[in-house]
C-alpha cells in the first residue's frame, strides 16, 4: 500500500533487529562463557569475544562432567535423547492407532473412549505429580526409561491431531480402497500411513522438543546420577554457594542442551510450525 514508505520499512527492520538481538544475547553470552576458564568468569569482567578454553571446556563437560554433577554430559545427552525419542515415537505409535480406531471403526463405547482420551488434554503432568510418582514407584519404574517415558505419553494431543487429519482424508479414498480389495490393515498401511507422513513428522518435532525439555518429571523419578537428563544436570551444576559453581562447565552444558532441539526447530521449521499450530487447534 501507499504507506510502505522507507521510514516504515526502516522501523520494521529496527524493531525486528532489536528483537533478534534480545532473543540471541543470553545464548551468545552462554556460548562465550563456554570458551573461558572459571577465573575469568568469576571476576565479573568476561569479554564479549570468544576465549581460548572452548576445547578444554567441551571435552571436560562431555567426557568427565563437573565437580558437582560428576556424570559426563555425553551420558546425560544419551539419556535425554532416549527419553525424547521414546516420548516422540511412543506417542506417535499409540495415538495414530487409537485415532485410526476412533475414526474408521464403529464399535461400542467409541464416543466414551474418545472422551476418556480427550479429557486428558486438559491436565498437564504437573498437577498430578505426586500420585503419578507413587504409581510409577509402585510399579518399580523409578530410575528406568520406561518410568521416564510412559506417563508423559498419556495425553490426547497426538490422538486429536491424527483424528483431525483423518477427518480431512476424503471418504471416497476408503471406498475406493474397499472396492480395490483392501481391508483395514491394508488401507492403513498402503494409504493412510503414507498420507500421514507430514503429520507424523510434525508431531515428532513437537514431541521431541517437549520430551528433551522435560524437567519436573525426570527431577522426581531419577535418583541415580546415571539416569540423569541434561536439563536436570545443569541445574545440579549451579549452587547458591557461588564458589562451587563452575560456570564455564554449566554454560558449556547449557549450550550442549540447546543444540539438539534448536537445530530441530531451525532445520524442520515448516514441520515445527505445522505441528505447533495444529496441535493447538
Amino acid at each position: 500500500m501507499v504507506e510502505n514508505r522507507p521510514f516504515a520499512q526502516f522501523m520494521a527492520y529496527l524493531t525486528l533487529a532489536i528483537g533478534v538481538v534480545v532473543v540471541a544475547f543470553p545464548v551468545y553470552l552462554a556460548i562465550m562463557a563456554s570458551t573461558f576458564d572459571t577465573a575469568t568468569i568469576i571476576n565479573g569482567n568476561m569479554p564479549l569475544t570468544p576465549g581460548n578454553q572452548a576445547a578444554e571446556n567441551y571435552t571436560r563437560a562431555l567426557f568427565y562432567g563437573g565437580k558437582l554433577a560428576r556424570e559426563p554430559v555425553s551420558m546425560m545427552m544419551v539419556n535425554s535423547m532416549i527419553m525424547a525419542l521414546g516420548i516422540a515415537f511412543g506417542k506417535i505409535l499409540i495415538s495414530i492407532i487409537s485415532a485410526y480406531a476412533v475414526v474408521y471403526f464403529k464399535f461400542p463405547f467409541r464416543k466414551t473412549a474418545f472422551w476418556v482420551i480427550f479429557i486428558t488434554l486438559m491436565l498437564p503432568v504437573e498437577v498430578r505429580i505426586y500420585p503419578t510418582y507413587k504409581i510409577v514407584a509402585d510399579l518399580g519404574l523409578l530410575d528406568t526409561y520406561t518410568g521416564l517415558i510412559m506417563p508423559l505419553i498419556a495425553s490426547a494431543t497426538g490422538t486429536l491431531l491424527f483424528r483431525q487429519f483423518f477427518m480431512t482424508v476424503p471418504d471416497e479414498l476408503l471406498e475406493a480402497s474397499k472396492i480395490d480389495g483392501a481391508g483395514a490393515f491394508r488401507f492403513f498401511k498402503d494409504t493412510l500411513l503414507p498420507l500421514s507422513m507430514t503429520t507424523i513428522a510434525a508431531l515428532f518435532v513437537i514431541q521431541f522438543i517437549y520430551g528433551w525439555n522435560q524437567y519436573l518429571w525426570p527431577l522426581l523419578i531419577t535418583t541415580k546420577s546415571s539416569m540423569q537428563t541434561i536439563v536436570i544436570g545443569i541445574k545440579k551444576m549451579i549452587t547458591t554457594t557461588d564458589a562451587l559453581t563452575e560456570w564455564q562447565i554449566a554454560m558449556t552444558t547449557a549450550v550442549l542442551a540447546m543444540v539438539p532441539p534448536v537445530l530441530v526447530v531451525i532445520f524442520m521449521q515448516r514441520l515445527f510450525v505445522k505441528g505447533l499450530v495444529e496441535t493447538e487447534k
Partner: peptide
C-alpha cells in the same frame, strides 16, 4: 457381499485417486 468381491468398479466424483 463386500464391495471388493462384487466384481464392480467405480469412478468417484472427486476421483478418489490415491494421492501418494
Amino acid at each position: 457381499i463386500e464391495p471388493a468381491d462384487r466384481d464392480i468398479a467405480m469412478v468417484f466424483q472427486n476421483y478418489a485417486l490415491y494421492p501418494h
